Computed example of a mutant assay.
Amino acid sequence: MAKRYGGTYSPGGPTTPQPDAGARFRGRRAQNVSIAARAMYLVPLPLLFAGLGEVMQGDATGMAVELGAFGILMLSAVLLNEGRRAEEAYHARAVARPPAIPRKMFAAVATTLGIFLAAGLAGGSGILGGLIFAAAAGAAQVLAFGLDPMKRKGMEGASEFDIDRVARALDAAEETVADILTSVRGVGDRHLEARVEKMLSAVRDVFRTVEADPRDLTRARKFLSIYLVGARDATRRFAELYSRNRDAAARAEYEALLDDLEASFRQHRDELLRDDKVALDVEIEVLRERLQRDGL
């Protein structure tokens, strides 16, 4: 029997409000994808084929050198791309510490070593020739991609302790945000994912407020430790339950919690800007009771 098609935008279709499609991008910078950095994964491939050719010829030494150079250059490509991502995260924040591991610097060192093995030992250029090629390759990589950020930024005139305190708190909050996204993506529901992203846009507004005035960190940390961690735990519980049985009641309850959390985050940001400590403490207590009462 024929059935009429009806979608969200069809005449007479469902009128359920859809989450703001732009919310997932609000407050976030577009990722800068470097084709040159990605291409570094392709550069060592000839060494892989050459090493396999040495296996066919029975040259164990040549195989070890060429496959070793391939592995080191692949490691360099991984470090370079991870270093660029860490650098983007650093530049996206108003208050940040430099990356704990200077990945781009290590990538340049790995490139230098890999090219020395490939050119000096496997390529027949000799030790001196290999050193020249290796130094040129390492220098070219540094010139092309730069080095890792080396300085703390933000809070001009503040002590290193204050900068570290803010940076650590925001790093921990960003990890919690990533956990929330990972949990909801495991459900496989685009609508829910967009709804969570909309709520998290309000979370990022709080981050920016703290970065603009780090004096708000003490109150914001207390707020985030309850609201954001509560949202993470609720999302994990909901994802486990909904993935098993697609319980419509649990979904409705979870979406209602998201609405309350989003409103609370936006209200919290306004209270931080007004420096309204009393209203903030009352709001924290109300949500604490809500999270203790609700269980998905």
Rank of each mutant, 00 (worst) to 15 (best):
A173I: 08
T176S: 08
V177C: 10
D179L: 15
I180N: 03
L181G: 13
T182D: 11
T182P: 00
S183H: 09
S183A: 15
S183Y: 09
G186I: 03
G186E: 01
G186Y: 09
V187R: 01
D189T: 01
R190K: 15
L192E: 04
L192A: 02
L192S: 03
E193Y: 04
A194T: 12
R195V: 03
R195I: 06
V196H: 00
K198I: 04
K198P: 06
M199D: 05
M199N: 08
L200S: 00
L200E: 01
L200K: 06
A202M: 09
A202Y: 09
V203E: 06
R204L: 14
D205N: 07
V206S: 07
V206Q: 08
F207V: 07
F207W: 00
R208N: 05
R208M: 07
E211W: 04
D213C: 07
P214G: 05
R215T: 11
L217V: 04
T218F: 00
R219T: 13
A220N: 00
A220G: 02
F223K: 13
F223A: 14
F223N: 13
L224C: 05
S225V: 05
S225F: 02
S225I: 03
I226M: 11
V229S: 10
V229H: 09
G230D: 07
A234W: 02
A234Y: 04
T235R: 02
R237E: 14
A239W: 05
E240F: 12
L241W: 13
Y242E: 07
S243D: 03
R246K: 13
D247F: 00
A248I: 08
A249T: 12
A250W: 12
A250S: 11
A252T: 12
E253C: 07
Y254I: 05
Y254K: 02
A256G: 09
L257F: 05
L257N: 05
L258A: 12
D260L: 13
L261E: 10
